[in-house]
Nucleic acid binder design. Structure first.
Lengths: 150, 150
DNA sequence: GCACAATAGATGCAAACGCATTTAATGCTT
DNA sequence: AAGCATTAAATGCGTTTGCATCTATTGTGC
């Protein structure tokens, strides 16, 4: 790898850091002010909501599985779940099959708070992220219905 | 903005979160293990080194200016500078013109530590970031010498 | 020149994190 | 079945962070 490549990667990293800082700071402020939720809290609630297929019953998640999805350590997620439980947004359930494990499931209240916060979340993302996606940069794998086919 | 666009932005945000978590975790581990430096510490040292044009004298930075560049709060940077100073990697200097201000400048030792850590830093970036830049995604503005001309 | 808003940086404080350890349950080997 | 490595989650602990506040200096209006 030559110097040009190295510089390129460094620039990409700085761009990523800048974008991450901008968006997560804005998200933290908005979600916290308007809904009393942290970014990680919202992210966890979202996974729990998404985990529900079509059946009425709330999906059950293991702590470690959630930790991987939201990029937190196991200990951090354990405490985060504790916070959410204290607020009544999720419930811990015994796992019969493996009694070491704990199932985490969202509550009615949790679903409500998540639904309330989602528009704010999406608005912040659109405002701070969309401008930088215009050239197809920093984007996820394109779908068949690309927003900017150009 | 329709649902497709919204989903697209959400996917982009998750991609960004995943990339950030992966790279910053790896960086934190490697820099800490091999050089006793945190990611933020390295980032600050790097700005200080880069700030030196060609003249021999170390460049002087204001605390708030550095804070903006590395995406930290003023208080966090103040303490970070204190840590670096305790380790002898930077020095605080009185600002004669405005005696509220403080100039931060890198020391010989700081330059050395940064130079030692840079290869590690670049290696981690290349290993974890390059694979995802292959399609020009998540990249800074392209240079005339693209790293992967196919 | 003197009071008062504004600014730079330091510091008290509480929240959230990761690492290491602990506790409890499982599974594997003999 | 007993013993021991393994795994899931909780917890102790130290570090880093941001917000609010404090102190010191600068600038501004009267």
């Amino acid at each position: 790898m030559n110097d040009v490549d190295t510089d390129f990667v460094v620039l990409a990293w700085r761009e990523l850091l800048a974008r991450h800082a901008e968006v997560s700071c804005a998200l933290e402020r908005e979600l916290s002010d308007k809904h009393g939720l942290g970014v990680s809290e919202f992210e966890v609630l979202e996974r729990l909501v998404e985990g529900e297929p079509s059946c009425a019953e709330p999906a059950k998640f293991r702590v470690q599985g959630l930790a991987d999805q939201v990029h937190l350590s196991q200990s951090a997620l354990s405490r985060l779940i504790a916070r959410l439980e204290r607020e009544g947004l999720v419930a811990r359930a015994m796992c019969e099959a493996d009694r070491r494990g704990v199932f985490v499931q969202i509550t009615e209240e949790g679903r409500r708070r998540h639904a309330e916060a989602t528009p704010t979340h999406r608005a912040v993302l659109s405002a701070h992220l969309s401008p930088h996606l215009a050239n197809g940069r920093c984007a996820p794998r394109a779908t068949d219905e690309s927003p900017h086919p150009a």
